[in-house]
Simulated assay, not measured.
Amino acid sequence: MNIKLNPQSILTTFLFVIGLLVIANLFGIYARFNLDFPHIQSVIRLVDVDTEMNVPTLYSSFAMFVASALLALVGYMHRLRKESSFPWFGLAFIFTFLSIDESSEFHEMLVGPVRDTLHTSGVFYFAWVIPYGLLAIVLGIAYFRFLLNLPRNILGLYVLSGCVFLAGALGLELIGGVIAQQSGTDSFIYAMSYTCEETLEMVGIALLIYTTARYIVQVFPGTQIEFVKSK
């Protein structure tokens, strides 16, 4: 069986799923503040993008794994050409870690220890943003020259996807920290804040997947993913 990559169809599919998840989340927020049906909290938890171990978390973890797999595929194809492949495999590892982190809540486990150690509040109320933000800066510096060597259209798309993702994962998380400390994590304004945050994260990953698929089509034209039976 051969699979041909169609970047536009991939992006459309992921954005469609994201749209459904956001609509379901907004319904959950409405239900939380306006409805009082039996077991409604179980339904809300199932679709809440700020709750771990549910449908949105499963989607986000899967999307990051897809991004990792495509990046690893690019690295493998460059290796076959005897070209530099390490940066691609490095990115694949990073998104594998993020995929695991998304489902395991590892970054959430850092909040208490970092907050207690550094006595953070306000924009750093969710203190995990400090180590992860520093890591993002280090990775940005390490990959700067690598990015500049990419085709210009691909470079622009990768920068866009990274900015969208980080605007949600770090930017709105900082704002959400202020809101959470002042209004509480059960407030409506905080619910809208994390909805915007998680939406940007999901769209950023979708753009990353699209860009990587487009890179494969552009740099390795005619590439097909083939599955064969082992002898």
Rank of each mutant, 00 (worst) to 15 (best):
T117E: 09
D186V: 09
P131Y: 13
T120L: 14
T195V: 05
V159T: 11
V164Q: 01
D116S: 13
Y215G: 01
I179T: 09
Y215K: 10
R115Y: 00
W128K: 09
C196E: 09
L134G: 13
H119T: 11
Y190I: 09
I137S: 02
S121I: 00
Y158V: 13
P221L: 09
D116V: 00
V114C: 06
P113K: 06
T120Y: 03
I209F: 02
Y190V: 07
A206M: 02
W128H: 12
L174R: 01
G140A: 06
Q182K: 13
T199A: 12
A169N: 07
Y158C: 07
I175A: 13
N153T: 15
A180R: 10
C163V: 02
G133P: 07
Y194W: 12
A180P: 01
I209G: 05
Y158R: 09
Q218A: 12
L110M: 15
A169C: 06
G176C: 06
T195Q: 07
T212R: 04
A127H: 03
L157Y: 11
E226D: 11
I205Q: 05
I179S: 04
T185F: 05
L174I: 07
Y158N: 11
S183L: 12
Q181N: 06
H119W: 08
I137N: 03
V129A: 09
G140T: 00
I225Y: 07
A191M: 14
V219F: 05
L200N: 02
V114A: 01
V138F: 14
L150G: 08
Y215C: 06
T223N: 02
A169T: 04
C196W: 10
Q182M: 06
G156I: 04
Q182T: 12
A191T: 08
R115L: 00
L139E: 04
S193H: 08
I154H: 10
A167D: 05
L134W: 07
T212P: 09
A213I: 07
V159I: 15
N153E: 15
F144H: 13
L150F: 10
S161N: 01
P113G: 06
F126G: 06
H119S: 14
T185I: 14
V203K: 02
L147H: 09
R214I: 00
L174P: 00
Q181C: 00
F220V: 04
T223I: 12
Q224A: 14
L160I: 00
E173N: 11
I179V: 15
I154F: 09
R115Q: 13
S121Y: 05
S187D: 03
L200M: 12
Y215L: 14
A167I: 03
N149L: 13
L166G: 02
C196G: 15
Q181R: 10
A142H: 08
A191Q: 14
N153W: 08
I175N: 00
V203L: 08
V159D: 01
G112A: 14
